[in-house]
Every structure is written in structure tokens, then in C-alpha cells.
Amino acid sequence: MPNKSLDYFLFDPTKRAQLSWTMRFHIIQGIARGLLYLHRDSRLRVIHRDLKVSNILLDEDMNPKISDFGLARIFQGTHDLANAHRVVGTFGYMSPEFVMGGTFSEKSDVFSFGVLLLEIISGRRNTSPDYHEKHLNLIGYALAASFSSSEVTRCIHIALLCVQDHAMDRPTMPDVMLQLFSETDCQTLNNQPSQSAITVTMVQGR
């Protein structure tokens, strides 16, 4: 793609400045649209399983394209959950239920989307070694950060809903899309009481 991948800009100290918040929000919305298509609008439901910054390509107008479907799985019929024979993916983006039990679903991609959101907002890698010692990774870092922009705040809220411990507590991509394009406070998303108390699992390598 003409503008390579998102990580080419996001994690380069000199190129990062080219990504204004307006452009970042545009990219976030585009990724959400792509996931919604894979999960709900495609003829066959697709779980990507390796959603990360380097797999987001950018065209000449900085429109995002989800790429690299090497680990993707197709769901047919009414199946919502599946088990993998081995855990494969990228450390830092994999959901707790997949890392610990090999179980994956649409909500696994939602978790990865939440991590991706936090990276786009902060310009930091989820597993960066330069966080303050009290923050284990970007999820912990984001919980301690605050922003005044309503759009940024909305995206942080959405991201934190997406990275909740339990898959059933996370929103679906239609819910995420509704919130991204709405001015309504994120706490009303899905009207689920469980989302008022967010819990985050910090998965560490051995």
C-alpha cells in the first residue's frame, strides 16, 4: 500500500506527528468498519485472530485496510466459540481466554481492537519496556491517563470496554460502531451493568 502500515507512522518518533487526532480517529473508525464487515456483513463470519498495528495497511488517502489473514478462521452457522489446538498470535493482543484456554470468538478480535485503540491513542506499543514500573503494559498505562478531548475520551472508554477480562462483558463490533459514531456516553453501551466496573487481566510471559 502507498503509505505502508500503521506502525510505520505510529511508532516512529519523527513520523508520528503526521498522524493528527482527526486522522487517527478516521483510522479507528475504518478499522471498526472492517471488523464489522468480517464479523457480521460478510457472507461467512471471519475471526481475524491477529489484529495488530502492523496488519493495518494505509492507502494513498490514509484509509485503513485490515490485512494478513493467515491465522483467520471462518465461522459457519450458529457457532460462536471455537478452540484452537495451539495458541498462536501476537503477544499483547491476544485475549485472556485465548491465551489461557485456547478459546476464541468474535470477542477475541474485539479485545485486540481495544489494545489497538489504546496504541493509536497513545502512540505507544502495548508491550513497550518504557512504561513506569507500576504499569505492566499499555492497558495499565491508559487506565492512569486522562484527556480533555471528547473523542479521545470516548475512544479510551470504548477501548477499556473491549479489553475486559470476560468475553461476555465486551461489546460486539456493532455496539462499538454505534458508540464510535455517537455522542452518547460510553457507559450506556449495551446497557450492561457489568460494564460499569471494568476489570483488566495483565497477561505476562514466563
Rank of each mutant, 00 (worst) to 15 (best):
Y8Q: 10
F9Y: 15
D12A: 00
T14V: 14
K15I: 07
A17M: 11
W21H: 09
H26M: 11
H26R: 13
G30K: 04
G34P: 04
L35Y: 06
Y37E: 11
L38E: 07
R40D: 15
D41Y: 08
S42F: 08
V46M: 06
I56A: 03
M62L: 15
N63L: 08
P64M: 08
K65M: 11
D68F: 07
G70R: 07
A72W: 04
F75G: 00
H85Y: 06
R86C: 14
G89P: 03
G92Q: 01
Y93D: 04
Y93A: 07
M94G: 09
F98S: 05
T103V: 11
S108F: 01
S112R: 03
L118N: 05
R125A: 10
T127N: 14
K134I: 14
L136Y: 02
L143Y: 00
I156E: 06
I156W: 05
H157V: 07
V163L: 04
V163M: 06
M168D: 15
M173G: 01
M173R: 04
M177N: 08
L178G: 10
T184E: 15
Q187T: 14
N190V: 11
P193I: 06
P193F: 03
Q195I: 11
Q195G: 14
T199Y: 10
T199P: 06
T201M: 14
Q204H: 12
